[in-house]
Amino acid sequence: MRSRRAVRALSELCLTSGALVVLFVVYLLYWTGVRADSAMDGEIGRLRDQWARHGGSAAVAPPTVPDAPPGEPRPDAAPPAPAPVPAPADGTGVTAPAVPGATASPAPPASPAPRTGGTAAPAAPPRAGAAFAVMYVPRFGTDWAKPVLEGTGLDTLKRGLGHYEGSAPLGGTGNFAVAGHRRTHGDPFKDLPRLRPGDAVLLTDGTTWFTYRVDTRPYRTAPTDTRVLDPVPAAAGYAAPGRYLTLTTCDPEWGHSHRLVVWAHLETTAPAAP
């Protein structure tokens, strides 16, 4: 009789813990995604409302980005600029590689990139946890749009991508660094390993469109390797100061032993509401 009760208790324990594990998997794979998707849609909707109120006609769809064939600069891709903005005297941000995507090593500085000065950096840094930009990556799908929030806290990353506090502002000289979940919470950076040199990463802050070009294949590194966030990340092959973008996520897909990093440089900027 006693052994019978023990067996019964044991089987109940197994059933209960099994159900717990299944529920937890459902929570991770499904429920966090549902919550994150609605939170991210909400953030994007709030941003667009805000831009519509303050900025006249807001940018609601990315401009058509020509998938520039590697090695061929597309002068017509640049927006019609009223006048070329003079390059900063210190030469920062004017050496965009002329051949985006041909190689991961830095292309020799060719010509000053058109219009990468002036309109870029916002005046005040956004409030921690607040969304301030929307990112589009055509490689991830035409409907892929995620909000970028200030900070990389756990709660922030549940509502979108996180901009590393202390890294450069969007479009500014230095390194604009963004982290995102690869798995769970909407899987925003699930396809980060599929990014290839030459891919476009578009960002808008409501007034300006920033088009970044990916320069490197996904780079695997240690979690403590903060040098990937340097203003001039050497591992990307950049040599001169410029306006760079860094995307980080975890690697392997479900683990945390490494990080996956992709770098891009600012190619063009365009006014969001011409």
Binding site: L20, L23, F24, Y27, L28, W31, T32, T152, L154, L157, G162, Y164, E165, G166, S167, A179, G180, H181, R182, R183, T184, H185, F189, T221, P223, T224, D225, T226, V228, L229, T248, T249, C250, W254, G255, H256, R259, V261
Partner: peptide, 26 residues
């Protein structure tokens, strides 16, 4: 479970580590 227990337990798992040394950066 979904509202309180799992959100608490989740950071103990590795899926949240998507930044390079968060503390160092801050």
């Amino acid at each position: 479970l979904f509202q309180y227990v799992f959100p608490w337990a989740e950071p103990l798992l590795p899926f949240n580590d998507v930044t390079v040394d968060n503390n160092g950066m801050q």
